[in-house]
């Protein structure tokens, strides 16, 4: 088990954030590397903005502390990190290494866990899944690698002394979960309203520290990450069977009748 130090100066939260190609632009896979193309506009994954906001609120409620970011990117990208720093995070670790290209969820968790450990946080927040890879396994993988408890799919988080109380999403509602700190908690999208960075925040973010580390700096070997570390290979990329567009009708007051007829023909009404 990895031991995490307690801090004297308030609450220390690490938020894992991913910088992804803007989902508003059409994505594609690079046929040569079989990885998602990371050209174009790279932004902070919206899914992670909820964790950043949650962390900032928890630190404020705790009466002080810091929010640190941990991120991984093959090409040294920092634009998304600057967005989160502008929201109010204090500093960031960016693990950037060409060897990271093709890294799977477990490899990602190894890298993030090693980077998080350098910050010795009281609490680690993540999204429930990234918007581009959406494996959804990284939070529990990080927790297992660090020997920590974890609560996934948090709707709300409350710090209670040395414990954290979480409302965890379930299929039919939610459950209340408590666990001692330090812990890993994944935050469901939409549960807080992420703040917009202020102009002052954006200016301040430019000079906040971003420590750039390689895989070797973290004590990991290149065989732990990338395609080499994955234990899987993409064998085919193919167009899925497409649904055909049907009839499209402009509503001029009788659109509802089209729907009634359609449902009648299906014999569902």
């Amino acid at each position: 088990m990895m031991r995490l130090a307690q801090h004297n100066s308030g609450m220390h939260v690490v938020v894992c954030v991913k910088q992804i190609p803007d989902p508003a632009e059409p994505g594609s896979l690079d046929p040569a590397t079989k990885t998602l193309k990371r050209t174009g506009n790279i932004i902070l994954d919206e899914s992670d903005s909820y964790g950043v906001e949650m962390a900032l609120q928890l630190v404020t409620n705790a009466g002080g502390g810091t929010v640190s970011l941990v991120s991984m990117a093959p090409g040294g990208e920092t634009k998304g990190l600057r967005t989160a720093l502008a929201m109010g995070a204090s500093d960031a670790i960016l693990v950037s290494d060409p060897a990271l290209s093709g890294t799977d969820a477990l490899g990602t968790a190894k890298v993030l866990a090693a980077a998080i450990a350098r910050k010795s946080p009281d609490l680690v927040l993540t999204a429930t899944e990234s918007s581009d890879g959406y494996t959804g396994t990284v939070p529990s993988q990080i927790a297992e690698l660090m020997g920590l408890p974890s609560v996934t799919f948090a709707k709300s988080i409350e710090i209670d002394g040395s414990s954290v109380n979480v409302r965890r999403q379930t299929e039919s509602g939610y459950e209340e979960v408590t666990c001692p700190l330090p812990a890993v908690v994944s935050v469901t999208a939409g549960v807080v309203e992420p703040r917009y960075p202020s102009f002052k925040g954006i200016m301040a973010a430019k000079s906040k520290p971003v420590e750039v580390l390689t895989v070797a700096d973290l004590g990991l070997s290149a065989s732990d990450v990338g395609w080499a570390g994955g234990g899987q290979e993409i064998v085919e990329i193919a167009a899925a069977e497409a649904r055909e567009a049907g009839r499209v009708v402009e509503d001029e007051g009788e659109g509802f009748a089209e729907i009634v007829t359609f449902l009648e023909n299906l014999k569902v009404i």
Partner: peptide, 24 residues
């Protein structure tokens, strides 16, 4: 299954065994 608990167990097991997970 891709459920709340399914992902939790799969993630932890993957980390314990050093085993890859193919998701979705």
């Amino acid at each position: 299954g891709t459920t709340y608990d399914g992902r939790d167990v799969a993630g932890r097991l993957s980390a314990k065994l050093g085993a890859p997970v193919i998701t979705n």
